[in-house]
Nucleic acid binder design. Structure first.
Length: 131
DNA sequence: AGTATGACTCATT
DNA sequence: AAATGAGCCATAC
């Protein structure tokens, strides 16, 4: 029988993510910060990375958001955009428009895939979330 | 074990 | 202003 695809992916991947959650991980730290973003505010990857140590680890924050799909409690990943306020991660949500819809539900204006008042709404954990 | 990739960002050209 | 290269580092293959 032709090489049937073993149902590895989802199950094992989720288990792997759970393992990451259980032990102290970079992801956990990221999610912790993201969960504290006030409703109606947004931040970006670099700010979170900077708050956690080096701002050059922004790519890892993006990875954490990707993994946030499995995170519980839920992580408001839609409040994290790139440094220009653009919804760079919207393609990774369940539906392409979900991210924008979630933002608009919080009274955040989104136009052409970017947060209109990004500068006003920007929430910097390093400044506003003093340990 | 080495290479490639990424929901990023910054400096340089 | 747009393109390019570099730095970052966990995962995937």
């Amino acid at each position: 029988m032709p090489n049937r695809k073993p149902a590895t992916s989802n199950r094992q991947q989720q288990q792997h993510i759970k393992d990451l959650i259980n032990k102290h991980s970079f992801f956990e730290d990221v999610w912790d910060v993201v969960r504290q973003i006030p409703k109606g505010r947004v931040t970006n990857y670099g700010a979170i990375a900077n708050y956690l140590g080096t701002k050059m680890s922004a790519r890892m924050v993006g990875w954490a958001m990707n993994a946030a799909f499995y995170a519980k409690p839920k992580v408001p990943a839609h409040r994290v955009v790139n440094r220009n306020g653009m919804l760079s991660g919207k393609a990774h949500f369940a539906t392409p428009d979900l991210m924008q819809q979630l933002l608009e539900k919080e009274k955040i204006e989104v136009r052409k895939d970017k947060v209109v008042k990004f500068n006003e709404l920007f929430w910097d954990p390093a400044k506003e979330l003093i340990l």
